[in-house]
């Protein structure tokens, strides 16, 4: 069954890391939701859509040897939890680097890559993955 409509609705958040901020407690959440899971009813009318900066640090990571079918040509690949500057934790692939380049705390940033495609004639799904972020020397 085609999943195009579901993916399409989530495009703003997956392309541009659009999440929400609850203006009752100040917390950020991703993906976007309509009420705050902490404040519940108190958050009604206080939910704001915000674009996250897309920068963070490696919180934890692993090298995946056996993954889903759509990543078979990338094996082995690096999968990480990323602590974002906005206080959120994301999980995603870390690309364009070697395991030796990574440590807990290594700065990364989100980029857009192909996540999967619905066969050779179907829709291509794009979303975020992470690459190393070079901290510019001042």
């Amino acid at each position: 069954m085609a999943t195009a409509p579901r993916f399409w609705r989530e495009n703003p958040s997956r392309y541009n890391l659009v999440g929400i901020k609850c203006n009752s407690c100040g917390r950020h959440f991703f993906p976007p939701r309509s009420i705050c899971p902490v404040c519940h009813r108190k958050s009604v009318g206080k939910i704001e859509r915000v674009k996250l900066k897309g920068e963070g640090k490696i919180f934890s990571w692993t090298e995946v040897q056996e993954g889903p079918e759509e990543l078979s040509s990338n094996r082995p690949y690096i999968y990480a939890m990323v602590e974002m500057e906005d206080g959120l934790r994301f999980t995603g692939q870390v690309i364009d680097c070697e395991p030796a380049d990574l440590q807990i705390g290594t700065p990364v940033r989100a980029v857009l890559r192909k996540l999967s495609e619905e066969g050779p004639s179907g829709v291509i799904h794009y979303g975020y993955k992470f690459v190393l972020r070079k901290e510019k020397s001042p």
Partner: peptide, 16 residues
């Protein structure tokens, strides 16, 4: 290009 790169992802990165 890596298996997850195409003209769209290259264009997006350049434009960003």
């Amino acid at each position: 290009p890596a298996p997850d790169e195409d003209t769209i992802t290259i264009s997006v990165e350049a434009a960003r």
